[in-house]
Design a protein around this nucleic acid. Structure first.
Lengths: 129, 129
DNA sequence: CTGCACTATATGCCCACCGCATATATGCTA
DNA sequence: TAGCATATATGCGGTGGGCATATAGTGCAG
């Protein structure tokens, strides 16, 4: 690891599941463009508890994705509230997304093996947990 | 999140899969006590590429776990090489482990949903990846 | 016995990134 | 005009990882 990583984040930690939030956001934005506040809600679809992480983190993550060229943003015109920055995925974003999806599949394999080992130790059949 | 986290790491990020390496190490050490260098090899069982992460990270992580009281360490006597610090899990370690396992099960659910959504977008049936 | 490779542990430096708190701005309502 | 909900953004402090480097014991080649 540490090579093909898809633009965001120079060094790359393998110990942590890197780019998970980024990947979720790219999938959501690919499904339909949206602004930060609404993406926050749509993340609930993935099983994130409502206040699971900080809204500030989300905005900073989106800005980082934009800086890396994986999404673009435009100010939504004519809304009747505060202005909204609407994010759209780019081709480069789709490329990084497909890379990160592969990484995450590998992570899932590791998780499965870990849970299997733990179950083997503790005699639980909790793999469906 | 941010409440029940099991001793290591005060604030707690939910966006990233926290404590994954720690959890792997606790499972390995619970299976059988071992020293850092050997745990490095045994991590390969979980699908970590051999040089997947830095050995320094592993040692620091083990020291952190010990500082938090989740493992203890003893210098192995009488070996014929450099001295080895052998780690053993504690009761508190087993407690944290069971908490983290639950967190990881939640992470796996999120990963499954993410991969499903991605597959739905791209018409792949790649959930077995 | 000197130098080198292998095993093994440890740490300093830098930086990514997260949570918390806070700041700012807009529009609606009382 | 004050308060509230929506919406975006940032400074601060801290965790933790990657990389490079230091240290140390052991065996072996020359």
């Amino acid at each position: 690891m540490g090579s093909k990583r898809g633009a965001v984040g120079p060094p790359g930690s393998c110990a942590h599941m890197e780019h998970f939030l980024e990947t979720c956001l790219l999938v959501l934005v690919e499904e339909a463009p949206g602004h930060g506040y609404s993406l926050m809600d749509r993340l609930a679809d993935f099983g994130f508890p409502p206040d699971s992480f900080n809204i500030g983190t989300l905005y900073r993550t989106l800005r980082r994705l934009e800086k890396a060229g994986l999404v673009t943003s435009d100010w939504e015109e004519g809304g009747q509230g505060p202005r909204r920055r609407v994010y759209t995925i780019t081709d480069q974003g789709r490329e990084s997304l497909s890379l990160w999806i592969e990484v995450i599949k590998g992570n899932r394999r590791r998780i499965d093996r870990l849970l299997a080992r733990y179950s083997a130790l503790h005699g639980k059949e909790g793999l469906e947990g």
